[in-house]
């Protein structure tokens, strides 16, 4: 992964030369919230160049969600471009989403499961530990349960890239860990970008970590390599601490 605040000073994506099979690249993105306001991004470039579980990290208010919405095409930047190496959709999900309350969550999940993915759905229901929620309506669930149900329905869809914006908020640490570990195994060939404020979690589980810094800092994005811990793997405490330190210094 490569990132830069000024495209002229840094190469946008070193892995580009390798022609990686999976890549998402933002080039010279410029954006401001209102015509009169200061730009939140100016010639911002960022690239994730491998499948896997990556992260977009940074303090509140630096524009992580805005950048995510630009990447998935929900917001049009004033300048720059977003390119991907595949034609599969980029999905973006966030933690405030709701399912309509006119049916149970189980019924909703059934209705949005594409043909042939009922098995995947059942596996995910168990991994996400939401089987007791299936007979209930979304409004009756706890926030953590709601976020898990919401994320699960996205994972059933066709996607090449998935941006999870605080999608596991309010979920307990152990369940979060289980979910992330299984996602990494089940979706090895996809790219998942995890937006979270949880320093330890991001450092521990993510592979390419883009630390988005405040507007006043240059470069805007600093690249950190995460520990990318897997199911069978054991955490290297020293390396983890080093990653965390790098992230903290970058932010």
């Amino acid at each position: 992964m490569a990132a830069a605040g000024r495209p002229s000073s840094r190469r946008a994506c070193p892995a580009e030369r390798k022609r990686s099979p999976m890549r998402i690249e933002c080039r010279n993105i410029s954006y401001r919230y209102h015509a009169e306001s200061e730009p939140i991004f100016e010639n911002l470039s960022l690239c994730y160049d491998q499948p896997g579980f990556h992260a977009l990290f940074g303090p509140s208010g630096v524009g992580k969600t805005t950048l995510a919405r630009i990447i998935c095409g929900e917001i049009q930047p004033a300048g720059g471009s977003v390119t991907t190496s595949r034609t599969e959709p980029i999905l973006y999900t966030y933690n405030l989403e709701r399912l309509p309350d006119w049916a149970t969550t189980g019924r909703h999940l059934e209705r949005v499961t594409p043909d042939g993915r009922a098995g995947l759905r059942e596996s995910l229901v168990d991994i996400f530990d939401i089987r007791p929620c299936l007979d209930q309506r979304f409004g009756g669930l706890s926030l953590g349960q709601q976020n898990r149900v919401n994320l699960l329905r996205y994972l059933l869809q066709d996607f090449g890239f998935l941006i999870m914006d605080e999608s596991l908020a309010n979920v307990d640490e152990k369940t979060r860990e289980t979910i992330i570990m299984h996602l990494k195994e089940l979706f090895r060939d996809r790219m998942i970008i995890y937006i979270s404020h949880n320093l330890v979690e991001v450092a521990r589980f993510c592979r390419q970590i883009a630390v988005l810094r405040s507007v006043s800092k240059q470069p805007r994005i600093v690249r950190v390599t995460g520990q990318d811990l897997r199911l069978e793997g054991r955490p290297d405490r020293t390396a983890l601490e080093k990653t965390m330190l790098e992230m903290m210094n970058a932010a």
Binding site: P89, T93, E97, R98, V112, Y154
Partner: peptide, 12 residues
């Protein structure tokens, strides 16, 4: 938005 987002971005 919070309800419609999923259906929009998945083309449903």
């Amino acid at each position: 938005a919070d309800v419609e987002h999923f259906y929009r971005c998945t083309g449903r």
